[in-house]
Simulated assay, not measured.
Amino acid sequence: MENSITKLFNIKYPLIQAGMIWNSGWRLASAVSNAGGLGLIGAGSMYPEVLHEHIQKCKKATKKPFGVNVPMLYPNIEEIMQIIVDEGVKIVVTSAGNPKTWTPFLKQNGITVVHVVSSVKFALKSQEAGVDAVVAEGFEAGGHNGREETTTFTLIPMVKEKLKIPVIAAGGIASGRGMLAAMVLGADGVQVGSRFVASEESSAHINFKKEVVKAQDGDTHLTLKELAPVRLIKNKFYNELQELYKLNPSVEQLKEKLGRARAKKGMFEGYLENGELEIGQIAGLIHEIKPAAEIVQEIIEEYKSIKKSFC
């Protein structure tokens, strides 16, 4: 399956595991990398010293390439970037910020840089900033999302039409069928998040993993667009939030309702009623918690089988 993405990252399959906060520690990243994909450590939920520990453990757990996802809206960004350089990480996926801010620094240190975008406009800005590839993420995705509400099905061909660098599709992909569809639309690879939440190696709480498996079509919704758009499973916190919206709340009132560490409470600590439960729409297609290597193999085998049936 050699193509521009496998060559860029020196991996077997053009399949990247998303760097999801509270879900993607060194165990998941190393398992995906060992299985032939590209594993990512999600730095967004880590203090600098915790990230340092996860990078070192990941190095010991795999000899294959892995990377770090860095949402630029979080604090300690300077310290995080320096740790990445000092530890010799070769791949960084940035998100939630301007790619011009850190791409030159990372490139100067020999790091391959990818940036997550939700529109053609920001894909072009990322290319101009000098990134090596973009992750084009559709409205279906879990966690923090774009404001444009452009679906993966329409976003990928529009981005591919305009860019000269490789395009990685994300949002609503959890199977070989989804991977093939994305590649037919023009993607050079895929990024998978939600499916890996329900893996044995995910650092998510077992309560959250089971809730993902239980989720059905229509059980998620994109909300909090006034702060940072986020797709959530509908629970007690979500319902209270919707009641607050009926009162036309201010940004400050929304911030007060959200509070601190609500995502950690839901996904990492397993408080299903009062925590943020971030997951993609594709959760309705996830029915079982499995080892990450098995998930990778299932996706790739299904991709090859269905592709072969059309040839």
Rank of each mutant, 00 (worst) to 15 (best):
R147E: 15
E149W: 12
E137S: 12
E137I: 11
L155W: 03
N145F: 03
G146W: 05
E148M: 12
K162F: 08
E137P: 06
P157D: 07
V167T: 09
A170P: 06
T154E: 13
G142N: 05
E149T: 13
E161G: 08
V134W: 01
A136S: 12
S175C: 04
E149Y: 15
V135W: 07
A136F: 01
I173Q: 00
F139K: 14
T152I: 08
K164Y: 07
G138H: 02
A174Q: 06
A169E: 03
I168G: 03
A141D: 00
I165V: 11
E161A: 15
G172K: 03
E149Q: 15
V167K: 05
V167A: 02
A133H: 12
T154I: 15
A174P: 03
G142V: 10
G138P: 10
A133N: 11
I156D: 01
V134S: 02
M158Q: 15
M158T: 12
A170Q: 02
G138I: 10
E137M: 13
E148C: 09
G146N: 13
T151Y: 04
A170T: 10
A136P: 05
V134F: 10
V159I: 09
R147I: 15
P166D: 05
A174F: 01
L155Q: 13
A136W: 05
E161V: 01
G171A: 02
V167W: 07
H144K: 11
G172M: 03
K164E: 13
G143H: 06
K162L: 03
H144L: 07
L155M: 09
G138V: 11
I168V: 14
E137D: 08
I156R: 08
I156C: 00
G172D: 00
K164D: 14
T150F: 10
H144Q: 06
T154N: 14
R147F: 15
V159K: 01
N145Y: 04
K162C: 13
V159C: 06
I156A: 04
T151C: 10
E148F: 15
V134A: 01
T154A: 14
E149K: 14
G143Q: 02
M158D: 13
E140I: 14
I165L: 12
A133I: 11
K164T: 13
P157C: 08
K162V: 11
G146I: 12
V134P: 02
H144G: 02
P157T: 05
P157R: 10
T154L: 15
L163K: 04
A169G: 05
G172S: 03
P166M: 08
K160Y: 04
A141I: 13
T152M: 02
P166K: 08
T150S: 13
T150P: 04
H144R: 13
E161P: 04
G172I: 01
V135A: 07
L163N: 07
G171K: 02
L163V: 06
L155V: 11
P166W: 10
A136R: 13
L163M: 09
